[in-house]
Nucleic acid binder design. Sequence first.
DNA 1: ACAATGTATAAGCATTTGCTTATATATCTG
DNA 2: CAGATATATAAGCAAATGCTTATACATTGT
Lengths: 108, 108
Amino acid sequence: MIVEAQLTSVMKTLADPTRRAVFERIAREGEVAATGLVKGSRVSQPAISQHLKALRDAGLVSERRDGRHNYYSVTPKGLAPLVDWLGHYRAFWHERIAGLEALLKETE
Amino acid sequence: MIVEAQLTSVMKTLADPTRRAVFERIAREGEVAATGLVKGSRVSQPAISQHLKALRDAGLVSERRDGRHNYYSVTPKGLAPLVDWLGHYRAFWHERIAGLEALLKETE
DNA sequence: ACAATGTATAAGCATTTGCTTATATATCTG
DNA sequence: CAGATATATAAGCAAATGCTTATACATTGT
């Protein structure tokens, strides 16, 4: 069952390109400290911090404090509302299913 | 390949609950005239009209003029940017793959 | 031709958003 | 302890967003 509010929260959070880029970097790099995300970013440290809060609130990332470092990593279940919602529209991306089947074979 | 701008556009467009509800109704009901969407909605006719424009601009729906009626239907490829983007994060919703496999069997 | 209907657009407005600078609050290090 | 480092929060602001009412513009029916 899809929880409207969660879906809205996840979509709104990922809709912003800067914030989505932060999410993508965390996903790619595994566990990253906030500082690592600030470096190589165009926006300020507070901006990144605010984006991280948004990602946390949406359940998309989790944090692990270690001294003065705050390490972020992707929360696997965070994308579930989006995946589930798209599942309801599979008829509309039916052509894509072939590609997905290939992916499934890979993961076997 | 994922086109950033398109993905942002699709996500931003679907992130709004009212607009997403409009999209969902079009998907469910097939081809609907704008009036049909206004009825049963809480917002005004112009609001619906503006949401339809946004959905059109994002490539999520298409329109067919017939006299003074404007019929809307879902554009299958519209969700592709979202599906493709999620495909890159399949490792993070791996648990969901079982469910997807079931879906795939259904569609065979 | 005239009124009614279906739809889009314009203008205005309150709210939300994403950023900035400035400032806290911890923690580590010499 | 004092300074440096890592991070978060507060305050302020311009831009974007989603809605409203008012109005325009076709098309249809009488």
